[in-house]
Design a protein around this nucleic acid. Structure first.
Length: 568
RNA sequence: UGACCUAUGGUGUAAUGGUAACACAUCUGAUUUUGGUUCAGACGUUCAAGGUUCGAAUCCUUGUAGGUCAACCA
């Protein structure tokens, strides 16, 4: 019912970009074509904000029966690397999208772009400027004060062409000359004050090698690249809004077809308790605050993948947050909700004790061992069940026992009963402590008639709680990495002081004395499971045959934790 | 003291001149061999002031608040 309504709502209510496209189709714009593109610069790893953009662009194409390109915006060889190209392609595919045709590169269009630059020179729309970047900046004015024209602004087309060709031929050093568009130094839009089209960079490019020593700027590249690829709707984030007049201006100078790509801007994603800027993420990596771009605490696609998030959950998240033009901060709990919802259906249950305490069942026969049957996923019967060994000595979670328990504590305490999931009902009789008073062992009795699924009266008895456990002799040691939010401030990047001051020092706890049931050995790297009553975990890449390492993807919702922390 | 953009519950997003709704979060309760899941319910919203209109979140005016723009970055 709910899902049906949601599905209906989805088809009926459009976001503002979908409305524009629907309207364009109605008006036969571009022969009703819809062609989008995802245009990352290969200078860093993709993060959840890019995932929003990817879902948007590929989603738009899918919804309107169009196409979506992947295009690398690689116009600056000083920042870009193949490593990033590869990781971006992997991430896009992992998220579940396939681009139309081959991968595109802005650098594929360098020849055409160069020709267009010469055309603009010939048309008197562009000129070579000999000034330093400082001089040019000083003439630029401010948003409220108009700029001054360059002394080189009125060179003849012939002279400009000659100089530009020399720039290309490598006759000048970096920064010695640049090519500028001749627009309006008094424009209220700073981007229209004779923007730079080409600069000299003597650096090998990851695709074009040493063919070029001049490289086009973003503004002189993006719209034309869209045009060349037949893009109809060029979706980007809000900070490019002021670039739109320039985007259109270049196209006006260079083409006169009816077809024209249209730039549309939307608000980028902000997530609470993390940072999203490439610069800040890079800083975390370079200064080793995290283990790398794919550290499970990072909001990067590779980090989330390693953490155990699913592409389905991320796509669902992107759907739920919507698309609009106002600044937003999405509560990270929505992302966590999407992950739990997906994993609840998919992840098999397993028992693992993170902080074990020994429990001995006094009246259980010495040396006896039996197998009990446990369902793999109560949400999905088809996942079947498995056998778990049970015996006289087991381990349970230290937090599942309390000597002086408050009323609201439903778990094990002296004189009270709990059920061991899939096995028997036990009653705590006494504890053994060490010299410091720390409990080292809990001694219990069990009700032999209460075995799960035996059908006996005793097996149907209601007890306050059911807890997880592992049999001592066959327990498998595992390592668990408990991840928490990387920052302890909702908006670490928006504060006056350094965002690193808000790093959560407890964002990673590595626990090395955990124990799991034998079935844990069947898991492969990256497999996702639910550790009963605790959370979702996945097998980390660092695992070996000797040591299985688990990353905590997300905890289960925990009303008891909420309750007990409130009483503190 | 410029141009452009934005303003709906705690957080997001709908409502396209006609009953302000959906999700997350929060809080109750029921169910439960996971204090999970599921189910039922509660809480709480149109930045302000004028105007147009039978009727305004929506249109107009004027404010206010927030954001973006002054890289040979994208």
């Amino acid at each position: 019912m709910t899902t049906k309504n949601q599905a209906e709502e989805k088809t009926n209510s459009l976001n503002f970009i979908e409305s524009i496209i629907e309207n364009d189709i109605k008006n036969n714009k571009n022969e009703k074509r819809v062609h989008t593109r995802f245009p990352p610069e290969p200078n860093g790893y993709l993060h959840i904000g890019h995932a929003k953009s990817i879902c948007l662009n590929f989603g738009l194409a899918k919804r309107f029966g169009g196409k979506c390109n992947l295009r690398f915006d690689d116009t600056n060889p000083t920042k870009e690397e193949v490593e990033y190209v590869d990781s971006i392609m992997e991430d896009v595919r992992w998220l579940g999208f396939e681009w139309d045709g081959d991968v595109h590169y802005a650098s594929d269009y360098f020849d055409q772009l160069y020709l267009w630059a010469e055309k603009m020179i010939l048309d008197g729309k562009a000129y070579v400027d000999d000034q330093t970047s400082e001089q040019i900046a000083s003439q630029k004015g401010t948003p409220t004060v108009p700029g001054k024209e360059s002394p080189f602004r009125n060179r003849t087309p012939k002279e400009n062409l000659e100089l530009f060709r020399k720039m290309r031929a490598g006759e000048y050093k970096d920064g010695e000359k640049i090519l500028r568009a001749k627009i309006d130094m008094a424009s209220s839009n700073m981007h229209m004050r004779d923007p730079i089209m080409y600069r000299i960079i003597h650096k090998e490019h990851h695709r074009t090698g040493n063919k070029w020593c001049i490289y086009p700027m973003y503004d002189f590249t993006h719209g034309q690249s869209d045009y060349i690829e037949g893009i109809t709707h060029s979706v980007c984030t809000l900070e490019f809004e002021v670039h739109r007049p320039l985007y259109n201006w270049y196209l006006d100078q260079l083409i006169d077809t009816e077809y024209r790509p249209q730039q549309i801007e939307f608000a980028r994603l902000n997530l609470s308790y993390t940072v999203m800027s490439k610069r800040k993420l890079l800083e975390l990596v370079q200064n080793k605050y995290v283990s790398g771009w794919d550290d499970p605490r990072m909001p990067t696609v590779s980090g989330m993948r390693r953490r155990g998030y699913t592409p389905e959950a991320i796509r669902d998240f992107a759907d739920r947050i919507g698309v609009a033009k106002r600044d937003n901060v999405i509560d990270v709990s929505l992302l966590e909700f999407c992950v739990r919802e997906d994993l609840n259906k998919k992840a098999d249950r397993l028992m693992a004790v993170i902080d074990p305490i020994k429990l001995v069942i006094e009246n259980y026969p010495e040396g006896k061992m039996e197998m009990v049957s446990v369902e793999n996923n109560p949400e999905d019967e088809s996942r079947g069940s498995r056998e778990m060994p049970f015996g006289k000595e087991i381990f349970i979670e230290r937090s599942d026992f309390m000597e002086d328990a408050p009323n609201k504590f439903f778990r094990l305490t002296i004189g009270k009963e709990v059920r061991l999931k899939g096995a028997y009902i036990i009653k705590a009789e006494r504890v053994i402590k060490d010299a410091e008073g720390k409990i080292t062992e809990i001694q219990c009795t069990y009700d032999p008639e209460s075995r799960s699924g035996s059908g006996s009266e005793a097996s149907k008895r209601k007890v306050k709680a059911t807890i997880h456990w592992v049999e001592a002799s066959q327990a498998v040691p595992i390592v668990v990495r408990q991840y928490d939010r990387l920052f302890n401030h909702e908006d670490p990047g928006g504060q006056e002081d350094d965002f690193k001051n808000y790093l959560n020092k407890e964002s990673l706890k590595t626990l090395t004395h955990c124990l799991a049931e034998p079935a844990i050995k069947n898991l492969k790297k990256q497999d996702r499971v639910q550790f009963q009553r605790q959370g979702y975990f996945c097998v980390d890449l660092d695992s070996s045959n000797e040591t299985i390492i688990f990353n905590r993807t997300v905890t289960l919702k925990d009303d008891w934790a909420k309750l007990s922390s409130k009483n503190d």
